[in-house]
């Protein structure tokens, strides 16, 4: 009895289920085949773009990277394979160590301050203050200017007898005036300040887009629950701004690590080597010191460095953002 029903149940179930699967698998297999065919057709559309990208970006980059293993000076028709000698030289080069330290400091300073200022500005212009559209345009305006131009303007304003010291002289004691770009202890901060001035508006726009994407109901619900202004910001706004924060931090870290234009125009890496970054060191070695191959090795290290830091940061923030949601 027991077996019967079991047998009855088991027997038809087995082949029956398999049959059902087979019946269902028929159209499923057909559909996935179609999808594969469609995907393959789409892939053909990618070929021209990929070919162009390989030809213009990948191939020259890989070809260029091979110079790091030679002794080429950037000019001589002949070059020799020297293995990892350029990378070993980097470890012993005090200029490279100094540039790495300065690069990390400026990238960290720019990332933190630029995003803090950008967030504050975004919160400010997101409120119902008058002429907020004009303010948005004004605050974003520096970001559309060429870094070289803004750096040249600031170079004049930060001169010992420039506009900034003139302004300070008008409102405070002379001791407040500084040699902004000529004092090795201040120069790096001054350069970072100019970068923040230019790109805080850029961060603001991204944060603003994030803020505008938060539904009004969420604010209202939090208010009904009796959350204070700070609590609303800390527990509602900040977690919902996670995607904007991730993008902003990524962009500013990458920008900070690659910083060149502003440094070159304002200080050329000086005074001494106080504002030397990896990018200015790469330029100097390639075009002023006949050390082309060494500069390529430095560039490879910088590329790996940027990729690892920004990749790690993205994973961390993305995971954090997902968890917050």
């Amino acid at each position: 009895m027991v077996r019967g029903p079991v047998g009855e149940v088991t027997r038809p179930t087995g082949p029956g289920r398999l049959g059902a699967e087979a019946d269902a698998a028929g159209p499923a297999v057909a559909a996935s085949g179609r999808r594969r065919r469609v995907r393959r057709a789409y892939a053909w559309f990618l070929v021209p773009a990929l070919a162009l990208y390989s030809f213009v970006v990948l191939l020259p980059s890989v070809q260029g990277a091979t110079f790091a293993f030679t002794d080429w000076d950037g000019l001589n028709p002949t070059r020799h394979f020297i293995g990892l000698a350029n990378f070993r030289q980097m470890l012993e080069d005090p200029a490279a160590r100094g540039a790495l330290r300065q690069t990390l400091v400026i990238a960290a300073a720019v990332t933190v301050v630029q995003n803090a200022v950008g967030l504050l500005l975004a919160l400010g212009v997101h409120s119902r203050i008058k002429s907020r559209n004009v303010l948005r345009v004004l605050l974003f305006a520096p970001a559309v200017m060429t870094p070289v131009v803004t750096a040249a303007l600031w170079k004049y304003m930060l001169a010992p007898e420039g506009a900034l010291n003139g302004l300070i002289a008008a409102v405070g004691p002379d001791s407040w005036q500084q040699n902004w770009l000529g004092d090795p202890t201040l120069a790096l901060c001054s350069v970072a300040g100019v970068v923040v001035w230019q790109f805080a508006g850029y961060s603001m726009v991204i944060f603003l887009a994030g803020l505008q994407g938060i539904p009004q109901e969420v604010y209202e619900a939090a208010a009904v629950d009796g959350a204070s202004g700070w609590q609303r910001f800390r527990h509602v706004v900040l977690p919902l701004l996670a995607p904007a924060t991730t993008i902003n931090l990524m962009l500013s870290v990458i920008g900070g690590l690659k910083l060149f234009d502003q440094v070159w125009v304002m200080t050329q890496g000086g005074p001494g080597t106080a504002t030397e970054t990896l990018s200015t060191l790469i330029y100097k070695n390639a075009f002023q010191l006949d050390e082309y191959a060494y500069s390529v090795a430095l560039a490879i290290v910088l590329t790996v460095f940027v990729a690892v830091i920004s990749g790690g940061q993205y994973r961390l923030l993305h995971r954090g953002g997902e968890a917050a949601r």
Binding site: K155, Y156, L158, P160, N179, W180, L181, G182, D183, G270
Partner: peptide, 11 residues
């Protein structure tokens, strides 16, 4: 000039 390190050629 005052603070030569902060003074450019143009200045």
């Amino acid at each position: 000039s005052k603070d030569p390190l902060g003074t450019s050629f143009e200045t």
